[in-house]
């Protein structure tokens, strides 16, 4: 037998080994995307469909105000909606993993307990990058333009991605609680649908009344959309609504990202550990 000296890393070494284990799992997920490209195709078709449906079905009926072109104004809403929906993917992927025999292999290996989650959320960033790319191209075709500098646009893209990343951890946690692909799909529809529709993604904040408007103004999806519109220069010169999150959309969105990660990363890792000891 060759001498294999097991090492149980500590401190900083433990963090880097957790990241590298996560990366190994992420690579495995990426191989799977290549193996079953049909999934990717469907994931990418739905945002295209949304862009076209909203641009041409509601395009004539909804007027965000002033001289703003609805199609251009809408695209950032679709960006936000799509990356938010993308988190369902994390949940479904993780739920599937938890039901398969491979999870026993992972559990019996001396790898970081967080690796399955870190790997899953990381590989789903690739999905989001691809779907943003596809949506951006579709958007350009229907008349969307980036009217700010490259740096601003980059901030917009990064913001969309980090918000999606944080939400992935939420859905990951749900998947650990209820490891069923069907339940995840239905549950996320029920939660994410209102979250994205009761926001400024498709209609302007002003079209909501009373309590609903307050909800819309404080909805993180609204802030994300508003931030993206400002970064890409798609506000059409309209002033931001007079609520703190709308006045400071980037800060507010990042605040949510930090909050979600601080709560759900430890919660998910703990739940993974627990569910692996049944």
């Amino acid at each position: 037998m060759t001498a294999y000296v097991p090492v149980t890393p500590h401190g900083f070494a433990r963090l880097t080994s957790a990241l590298s284990d996560g990366w190994v799992v992420a690579q495995r997920n990426l191989i799977k995307i290549r193996r079953v490209p049909e999934v990717l195709v469907w994931v990418l078709i739905s945002p295209i469909m949304f862009v076209l449906l909203f641009a041409y079905v509601f395009g004539g009926a909804i007027n965000p105000g002033g001289a703003v072109d609805y199609k251009e104004w809408l695209i950032c809403g679709i960006f936000a909606q799509t990356v938010v929906f993308g988190s369902t993917f994390t949940g479904a992927g993780l739920a599937e993993d938890m039901q398969k025999g491979i999870i026993d292999r992972f559990r019996s290996l001396p790898m970081a307990r967080s690796a399955v989650l870190v790997g899953r959320t990381a590989s789903d960033v690739v999905y989001n990058v691809l779907s943003l790319l596809i949506m951006g191209l579709t958007g350009l075709l229907v008349g969307w333009r980036i009217r700010e500098g490259a740096l601003d646009a980059l901030v917009g893209v990064v913001l969309l991605l980090v918000f999606a990343y944080a939400l992935s951890w939420v859905m990951g946690y749900v998947a650990l609680l209820v490891p069923s692909v069907e339940v995840i799909n239905n549950a996320s529809f029920i939660v994410i649908m209102p979250l994205t529709f009761v926001s400024n993604a498709f209609v302007p904040t002003e079209s909501f009344d009373g309590v609903l408007r307050t909800i819309v103004e404080w909805n993180p999806v609204s802030a994300l959309t508003q931030a993206a519109r400002e970064c890409f220069g798609n506000t059409g010169g309209l002033p931001a609504p007079d609520a703190w999150p709308m006045q400071h959309p980037i800060a507010y969105t990042l605040g949510w990202v930090v909050l979600i990660l601080v709560v759900f990363v430890p919660l998910s890792v703990r739940q993974y550990r627990r569910s692996s000891l049944k």
């Binding site: 799977k32 025999g101 491979i102 026993d104 992972f106 019996s108 290996l109 001396p110 690796a115």
Partner: peptide, 30 residues
């Protein structure tokens, strides 16, 4: 875990990955 190898009742391998990819992944996780 670092000192044991387990082979279960249900083959714990990833179906989409090749045999080679499965083993490389396991090696890297060790």
């Amino acid at each position: 875990r670092a000192r044991l190898g387990l082979s279960g009742q249900y083959a714990a391998v990833d179906e989409q990955l090749s045999g080679y990819e499965n083993l490389v992944m396991v090696g890297r996780l060790y």
